[in-house]
Structures are given as structure tokens and as C-alpha cells.
Design a protein around this nucleic acid. Structure first.
Lengths: 187, 187
DNA sequence: CTCGGTTTTTGATATTTGTCAAAAACTTTG
DNA sequence: CAAAGTTTTTGACAAATATCAAAAACCGAG
């Protein structure tokens, strides 16, 4: 729990009162490799903080699993669309490694927003960071070649390559596994 | 100005005090077709509300202009990366039509966040909406074919097609203008 | 209306990436 | 450590999309 609070303070420093309030609301979850944190069709009512481990978001398309994001240590994860809109998720969230997570419900979080302006600020700032991160992925997806996207991955998020099966990485990069394999053989 | 406030209340209802504070900070800007709201290399220090008109965000790549987003009536627009991080923008924002905008500086907005919790909440909610919107574009860019992306455009944002030159739309969809032309000829 | 410039379309061809099938390499487990 | 399963690579070929060049359509100013 201390780790969670330290990381949150890194995002945006919080008063003791706000920290105590958060501490009361987050619940610890321990999951094993291949467990599901969320199944498609369910409404995702929680925001999670990933203390240790790795997971992926994926959806099914024509019988294939399309992994479109990963979560690692210190990431906030959720099915954002479902969490924000309250609609059923189109994606699954599955553990890639045994992991420790902390969960807070949307209801509790909304209540904390009312009680502590600074927690809402924290969230506003978190959204800013995540927005920028997504924007960069979007530009890569739309305007870079498969090879450039792979080089980008090596330079900026090498840890993904070291912890995730190539099949997941291929769809994360928006290419087939065979193409990824051929690109890799050029290095 | 009344229009701006009405739209903002649509996003999230505000108290009279918060509305008055906003009213004090927003400045009206009128620009003509082809004018620039932002040039690459400059830090974007303002958030804009587009009351009337249309504009595009684009950057230069190998001598080509890559349009990656459009703004229309009632959109909040800025170069998010630059606005959030304070770094120079890599993109240009150019008017596609004569437009009426309202500007607020980041400095003023930050001050308003301190004075009115509810304005920060408005912004948090706005980020949520923009995050989801971007997420959808990302999934389209990465996992749909050119034809599917065009069909999507017709179904969901037909107004773009009616107000923007095809050259801009092609790069918005992440395809060459020739390919877009060929896809269009199939309809 | 018409000239000059811009935008859009069409044609021919090249490049990139995907698909299917099989082989090879790696992992797990009894 | 060997069998069975899984993941990754390789090969042959097909499909999607890009590029370059030229023609056609459109558009605004005089």
C-alpha cells in the first residue's frame, strides 16, 4: 500500500487527509498468470493500480485475439471506455504474469472527487498523461511503417519485448506475427 | 459568449460564479480561412473553444502535410501535447473556414482550477470524452482497413466529408489520396 | 465566359504487408 | 530426458496500398 501512495504522490502530491481517504478505498487484489481481471461484456466498474506484474487488454476479432495495450508496474489500468461510459466492455483484461493490484470502484472514486478536490486534480493530471501517451501511439499506428513501429518499441519500451510473447506484441504493433518475425530477423 | 457558456454547461453544469469566472477569462478570436492558430515550434499556451468554423491539425513529413485531426463547432481544440507538457508543438493548426474561437490561457485555466473545483471537474470530464474518442480512432487506425475507415467516416462523421478537401481527409484516414479516390469510386 | 491554378481521378507499376502451411525452436510436464 | 504442446520462423503466394505520371474536373478572378 505504501508503494501505491508513493507512486500517486509522484503523479501529484497529496495531503495526508487525501492519502488516508485513498488508503481506505483501495483494495488489494492478487492474481495469477492467465487470470482475467475483466471479461468482455461486463461493465468495468473499477480503476486498478498495477503494483507488480504485467497484463494485456485484448478483444476478439474473427477468432483472433487482438492485443491493443499492455499494463506494467505503476500503471493505472481499466477498460477506459467501459469505466467512463458505464457500457459493457468490448475488451478482456488478462494477466501476463502473476500480479499485485489495487482496486478502487468508480463509485468510491466519484465520492472521493467530491470530498477532495486534489484527488480530482490527480485524476485530471493522470488523464492528461494518458491522453498524450495514446496520441503518440495513434500517430505511430496511422503514419509509421511496421518496421518503424518496431524500432520505436525497441527504443522506447524495450521492457515489453522482454516480458510479452511475440504474438501479443504483433497485434500491439498492428501487424501479423509473421511480419513481425521477418522484421526482427533484419536486426 | 452565451453560446460558449451553454455548451460548457452541456458538458457539465456550472454554478453562476464559475460561469462568471470563465466569462472573464475567455477572449474572442476571429480568423479567416487558411490563417494559422498555431505554427509548429511554438508552445501552445491556450485552450480554444471553436464556436463556429472548422480547422485542422497537421504536421510536415517528407515535404507532405499530414492532417491528423479536425476541429468543428463546439470542439475544444489545442495542440494537446504542447499545451499539457509546455514543449514546442510539432504540429500546425490552420483554419479551414473563417471561424470564431474563444481562447483561455493555460495560466488562467490553472488559476480557475484553484478557485473553482467544478471547473477542474469540467476539464476532467472533457479529458475523459476526448480520451475515449481518441481511443476509437486509434483502434480504427491500427486494426481496420482503409475501406472500413472510410465507411466509418461516412457513418459517423459525414460532416467532415462535406467541409474538408479530400487531400486532408486522406491523411486523416491514414491513406494516400489516390487510394481514397479509388475507394470513393466504389460507392 | 474563360484562363490559370488547384483538386481529384485514373492508369500502370512497385512495395508493403497479410495469409496459409509447414518446419524449427522452445517449454512444460510426467 | 522425452513426448506433447506451444511459440516462433520460414517459404510461397495473394491482397492491400503506395507511388509516379498524366488526364480530367472543378473553381475563382478578371
Amino acid at each position: 500500500m505504501q508503494h501505491l501512495l508513493t507512486q500517486i504522490n509522484n503523479y501529484h502530491p497529496l495531503s495526508a487527509a487525501a492519502q488516508a481517504a485513498l488508503q481506505n478505498c483501495f483494495e488489494k487484489i492478487t492474481l495469477s498468470r492467465n487470470d482475467y481481471l475483466l471479461g468482455e461484456g461486463k461493465v468495468c466498474k473499477h480503476l486498478y493500480f498495477l503494483e507488480k506484474g504485467a497484463l494485456r487488454g485484448f478483444y476478439n476479432l474473427d477468432g483472433k485475439e487482438i492485443t491493443h495495450w499492455f499494463g506494467f508496474e505503476n500503471d493505472f489500468v481499466t477498460s477506459f471506455h467501459s469505466f467512463i461510459t458505464g457500457e459493457p466492455a468490448v475488451e478482456n483484461i488478462q494477466l501476463l504474469e502473476g500480479s499485485i493490484l489495487w482496486a478502487i470502484s468508480k463509485e468510491q472514486l466519484t465520492e472521493l472527487f467530491n470530498l477532495h478536490h486534489e484527488i480530482e486534480r490527480l485524476m485530471r493530471i493522470a488523464y492528461e498523461k494518458y491522453y498524450i501517451r495514446l496520441e503518440e501511439r495513434f500517430v505511430n499506428a496511422q503514419f509509421k511503417t511496421a518496421k518503424e513501429r518496431y524500432e520505436n518499441l525497441i527504443q522506447q519500451t524495450l521492457h515489453i519485448l522482454e516480458r510479452v510473447p511475440l504474438g501479443c506484441i504483433a497485434s500491439y504493433l498492428g501487424i501479423s506475427q509473421e511480419t513481425l518475425s521477418r522484421i526482427r530477423s533484419q536486426f
